[in-house]
């Protein structure tokens, strides 16, 4: 009788634990879905990005919340990513003085959560720009078409959607 009560208690406990666990997991997934993971950009991260992408053509897009044409390029990428999965794109926000929530809102609005996102830490704008390309003056949007051998081809200003899709979607 005592044993039976004990078992009942344990079963209730297990049920409660399982519900909690499932809820926690679901909530964690939900959070991940809502907010894209962002990493502070620096020279070490940049090396890792390059190594990770090596061997295939990829695109690095740099943008700012203060750059209306950048939004057009984000929209293009958003459209392309809905047609084709697994596009090789790395997105870097160059704003220093902007709240993370402001950037994330835009990433969410354009449904770009699946890409790798980086941001420039406060006071590091020029440093990071120099690490990426000392001949780039910060004009935006800035797109780097990186070939399979890791060679960078930089282009300032909004890029043509056909060129973008040709680069990212091989035939």
């Amino acid at each position: 009788m005592i044993n039976h009560d004990n078992n009942k208690f344990i079963i209730a406990l297990v049920a409660w634990l399982m519900t909690t666990l499932i809820n926690t997991t679901l909530m964690a997934k939900e959070t991940a879905k809502e907010t894209a993971k962002e990493t502070a950009f620096d020279a070490v991260e940049f090396e890792q990005i390059k190594q990770l992408q090596m061997g295939r053509p990829w695109l690095m897009l740099l943008w700012s919340v203060d750059c209306p044409p950048c939004f057009k390029e984000l929209k293009m990428i958003s459209n392309l990513s809905q047609q084709v999965e697994g596009l090789a794109i790395v997105i870097v926000n160059t704003d220093e003085q902007v709240e993370a929530s402001e950037r994330q809102q835009i990433i969410d609005d354009y449904q770009l959560q699946q890409f790798q996102h980086f941001y420039f830490e406060d006071g590091k704008n020029d440093h990071n720009r120099f690490v990426i390309d000392p001949s780039w003056y910060g004009e935006l949007p800035r797109s780097y078409f990186v070939d399979a051998n890791g060679k960078f081809h930089g282009k300032s200003g909004l890029i043509n959607e056909a060129i973008l899709s040709k680069w990212l979607i091989p035939n």
Partner: peptide, 8 residues
Amino acid sequence: RINGCPHQ
């Protein structure tokens, strides 16, 4: 020629 923001 730039369809973008020089910020300068």
